[in-house]
Structure formats: structure tokens, C-alpha cells
């Protein structure tokens, strides 16, 4: 019994230790971010990195999410004779929930994994040690520009997802299922308010921090060799995705 408790205690302490390490990494990065100089050129490159890598996949996901939502919600609403509410139902679901979550998951798979691999390769090829040896702070060059870029790019990608999703829902609802165009948008205008848009914005901002933080952390602490980088990349995608869903629930509960 004592051995079991001992093992359990050791496990718990090691989990706490690792969590502390992960949070300290974020705090050190944020501390570095507020102290000059800010690496503006690297930041711009990373904005391009996140945006360029993820735009197409976000467009595709947004389009098909809007279409399938319109299709499914239409058949549900028809059972209650409320087809006129299709526009706001699609818009609310996308703006408050699916836009931020799905675009964050897509960016995680596309850019987050690439970011972990890139930083991981820099780690195993001693490029991070080289920065340290030049008396420079690697967080300033590798981590801070990514976190700031993600905080800027995630809401923009989410906005694009929302727009494409709502218009794709319009195509299915109006062109395919025969709903009137006026009904789709006028009801949306009445029911969706700024608070809904803000909730989506807060979510996407926080997802930007989560994805860039976890992706950078995993790359920065990648193990040795190709296997170490491969493990770090998988772990970054899985951890970021799970955290996005968990944080989405808690943030949704608070902001509801």
C-alpha cells in the first residue's frame, strides 16, 4: 500500500513539475515580449508563416462546415416549421463555436506542427545553443514573434472562416434548399449581436496563445534526433488540440 502511495505521489509531483515548467516557459516568453527590442521582421515572417500555411485549409474547412451545417440544421428546423431561423442558427454556431475551434484545430495541424518541427530541428542542430552562446535570448528570436503573430493571425483566420462558412450556408440554404435570401440574412441581423462576435474573438485570441505556446514549447524541448522531433511534433498537435477543446468548454461556460 505504501509503495503504491509512494509511486502515486512521485507521479503527481512529476506532473506538477512538468506543468510548472510549461507555465514558466510561457511566463518567461511574455516577460521577454514586453521588454525591448521586439523582433519586428521575424514577427512579420511568422505572420506570413501562420497565414500562408493555413489560409487554404481554413477556407476549405469553413466552406464545407457552413454547407453541412446549413443542410443538417435545415432538416431539423423543418420538423418544427422554423426554416426561417436557418441563417441565425448557422451564423451563431459558426461565430460562437465552430469558427474559432475548427480554424484553431486546422492551424494546429498545418502551422503548429511545422513550427514545432522547425524549432525542434534548431534545437537538435545546436542552433538554439548557438544563439545562447552569442549572449542572445532565444525566446526573443524564436518564441515571442510566434506568440504575437498567432495572437494576430488566429482572429483573422477565424473571421475568414466565419465569413466563408456563413456564405456557404447561404448557398446551400438559398440556392439548394429554396429558402429566400432575405429571410437568411434579415433574421441573422436581428438575432446575432456583437456579444456573439466578441465571444468568438476572445476564443480565437486565447487559442492563438495556446497553439503557439504549446508548439514552441514542444519544439524547444524536443528530444534527440529525428525521433525526438517527430515525437515533439505529434505531442504538440495532440496537446494543442485537446487544450483547445477543454479551454473552449471552460471559456464558453464563463462567457455564455
Amino acid at each position: 500500500m505504501l509503495t503504491f502511495l509512494n509511486t502515486l505521489g512521485e507521479w503527481f509531483l512529476s506532473v506538477l513539475n512538468r506543468l510548472g515548467h510549461v507555465f514558466l516557459f510561457l511566463l518567461r516568453s511574455l516577460y521577454t515580449a514586453v521588454r525591448p527590442p521586439f523582433k519586428f521582421r521575424i514577427f512579420l515572417r511568422q505572420v506570413r508563416f501562420f497565414g500562408n500555411k493555413s489560409l487554404l485549409v481554413v477556407l476549405m474547412t469553413g466552406a464545407f462546415t457552413g454547407m453541412v451545417l446549413a443542410l443538417q440544421i435545415y432538416y431539423t428546423l423543418r420538423k418544427f416549421g422554423s426554416e426561417a431561423l436557418l441563417g441565425p442558427a448557422v451564423a451563431l454556431t459558426i461565430i460562437r463555436e465552430l469558427g474559432p475551434v475548427l480554424s484553431a484545430l486546422m492551424v494546429t495541424g498545418r502551422a503548429g506542427s511545422a513550427l514545432t518541427a522547425e524549432i525542434g530541428i534548431m534545437k537538435i542542430s545546436e542552433q538554439i545553443d548557438a544563439l545562447e552562446s552569442m549572449a542572445l535570448n532565444p525566446l526573443r528570436y524564436l518564441i515571442v514573434p510566434n506568440i504575437v503573430a498567432a495572437v494576430l493571425v488566429f482572429p483573422l483566420l477565424t473571421a475568414i472562416f466565419d465569413l466563408v462558412g456563413i456564405y456557404s450556408g447561404y448557398l446551400v440554404g438559398v440556392q439548394l434548399l429554396g429558402l429566400s435570401p432575405g429571410t437568411y440574412f434579415s433574421q441573422m441581423d436581428t438575432i446575432v449581436d456583437m456579444q456573439d462576435v466578441n465571444i468568438g474573438l476572445y476564443k480565437s485570441l486565447s487559442f492563438g496563445v495556446i497553439v503557439s505556446w504549446i508548439s514552441c514549447y514542444k519544439g524547444y524541448h524536443a528530444g534527440y534526433g529525428a525521433e525526438g522531433v517527430s515525437r515533439a511534433t505529434t505531442s504538440a498537435v495532440v496537446t494543442s488540440s485537446v487544450l483547445i477543446l477543454v479551454w473552449d468548454y471552460f471559456l464558453g461556460s464563463i462567457l455564455l
Partner: peptide
């Protein structure tokens, strides 16, 4: 420092 694998920035 000259690192073993050169450690040049890619």
C-alpha cells in the same frame, strides 16, 4: 563558439 555540427542558421 564553433559547434560540432556548425549550427548555422538554416
Amino acid at each position: 563558439v564553433v559547434f560540432q555540427g556548425s549550427a548555422l542558421f538554416d
